[in-house]
Design a binder for these strands. Structure first.
Length: 421
RNA sequence: GGCGCCUUGGCCGAGUGGUUAGGCAGCGGCCUGCAAAGCCGCGCACGCCGGUUCGACUCCGGCAGGCGCCUCCA
């Protein structure tokens, strides 16, 4: 199996099974209901884990929660902890409802403070970081390779609002001194405060996996500065950190990236309620994970039609045939789900198709709901009316069944009832 | 100013130096009392301009348009 590695800008072969393949994916900052764009790395991580296991790997997925952060303080001054806790529960609930299972661990920043503090201490000791007035900053000038992940040239990075505490405008915060309105803080050798954004991931990933692991994931918008800084911090301590960096493309909405900051976000909850989990999952399958994907009603409607198409395969007799090897090859080649999906569309073999769909959490498409006996009676009455030539009555009964959410289908072998799409 | 990515038929979306992607929608037909589902047939696409080549959608260069990032973002 091979995957595109942002760090080397090429496709790279994974070590042969059984691995292990340890994966760390960046999760959301929790201060409101997560949007559907946030679901993309979650879904990708769960699918990759499932696929790697299918291929005989020991695969482990750790997906973190950022539960201390400026955004949370802004959203709930003096009550950020309560908000973060609530929003974490939402996230777990919403991603759980995708029906893909859950990551092997979901560490929270606030529960990883000792590791974070130790990490910063080591960086200071090595003079890769410095404390000033309760803040601690990473000394970017100490890292000659800074920018190797994102391709940024440190001398060209746009200057931010000047921060007189920094030795160099490119330096980034590892620890921020406690400020008014910030209700969460921890003691540290440099004073009471809380971790900066990037250090938590270095600490949590290494807590889970040690100084080196196979795959790091997250959104493409995290490449710089977040992932760049994670790499810099860990490399500064001589740790290899992640070998393969996978960043998923952004979910677009109305021609822009969907994001909480832009206010154009649609929650996972909302999409789940409107379209159902199968449509959401199939929607993500239609685009390659590295490419942007447009969230539009038209696209979702097309996806829904595909969902029905798969259901109908299972409502028809199974026919042997289907190239599993080609399916494997597509997924082994940079996890090309659109190509794998195209193959699935050609399969009529129930067992094989179900096996393929199950890998993506879509095994439910193979399951049929049974109509109530009352509906069966109506359908039989309609059949009787039809046979008697009373088509007006037959159509009336069909409408009644339709209103109950079911569709009557006449086949050569007799009528059947299927759930209305 | 810097870094990176993208541009395929009505829509979504793979892929390849010369050979059918696939799906959705649409049109025609079969089937049906009418439908639904299914089946059969139909589109000959690769942003623009150059170059390399016997031949480019595929390689190279330029241009145009779009997207992401530059220390809050999945």
């Amino acid at each position: 199996m091979r995957l595109y590695n942002t760090l080397t800008r090429r496709l790279e072969e994974l070590p042969p099974p059984p691995g292990p393949i340890r994966m760390y994916f960046c999760g959301p900052t929790v201060y409101q209901r997560a949007h559907i764009g946030n679901a993309r790395p979650f879904v990708l991580g769960m699918w990759l884990r499932a696929w790697l296991r299918e291929r005989g790997y020991e695969a482990i997925l750790v997906h973190n929660i950022t539960d201390v952060n400026d955004k949370i303080y802004e959203a709930a001054p003096n009550e950020s902890a309560a908000l973060a806790e609530r929003a974490t529960a939402w996230y777990v609930e919403d991603t759980g409802d995708l029906g893909l299972g859950m990551p092997d661990a979901m560490p929270k920043a606030t529960e990883s403070i000792p590791s974070i503090v130790r990490f910063i201490e080591d960086l200071i000791e090595g003079e890769f970081a410095y404390a000033v007035q309760g803040d601690v900053y990473f000394r970017v000038a100490r890292d000659p390779g800074y920018g190797r992940l994102s391709g940024q040239r440190p001398d060209q990075v746009e200057e931010q609002e000047p921060n007189p505490l920094k030795e160099d405008p490119r330096d980034f915060a590892l620890w921020k001194a406690n400020k008014p309105g910030e209700d969460t803080s921890w003691d540290a050798p440099w004073g009471r405060g809380r971790p900066g954004w990037h250090i938590e991931c270095s600490a949590m990933a290494e807590d889970a996996f040690g100084p080196a692991f196979e795959i790091h994931g997250g959104g493409l918008d995290l490449v710089f500065p977040h992932h760049e800084n994670e790499l810099a911090q860990s490399n500064a301590l001589g740790h290899e950190f992640a070998r393969i960096w996978t960043q998923n493309g952004m979910l677009q909405f109305g021609g822009e990236k969907m994001s909480k900051s832009l206010g154009n976000d649609v929650s996972i909850r909302n999409v789940l309620d409107t379209w159902g989990r199968e449509v959401v999952l199939l929607f993500f399958m239609t685009a390659h994970w590295r490419k942007p994907i447009d969230f539009t009603d038209d696209t979702l409607a097309q996806t829904k039609a595909q969902v029905e198409g798969f259901r109908n395969v299972f409502r028809s007799p199974s026919e042997p045939g289907g190239d599993w090897a080609a399916f494997e090859a597509a997924l082994d080649d940079d996890f090309n789900t659109p190509e794998a999906l195209a193959l699935l569309h050609g399969w009529r073999d129930h067992e094989l198709l179900r096996r393929g769909l199950e890998l993506f959490g879509l095994g439910s498409l193979a399951e049929q709901k049974k109509a109530s006996s009352a509906l069966y009676d109506l359908a039989q009455k309609r059949e009787d009316a039809r046979r008697g030539g009373n088509f007006a009555e037959a159509d009336r009964l069909r409408d009644e069944i339709d209103r109950a959410g079911w569709v009557v289908r006449d086949t050569p072998g007799g009528w059947s009832l299927v759930e209305k799409p």
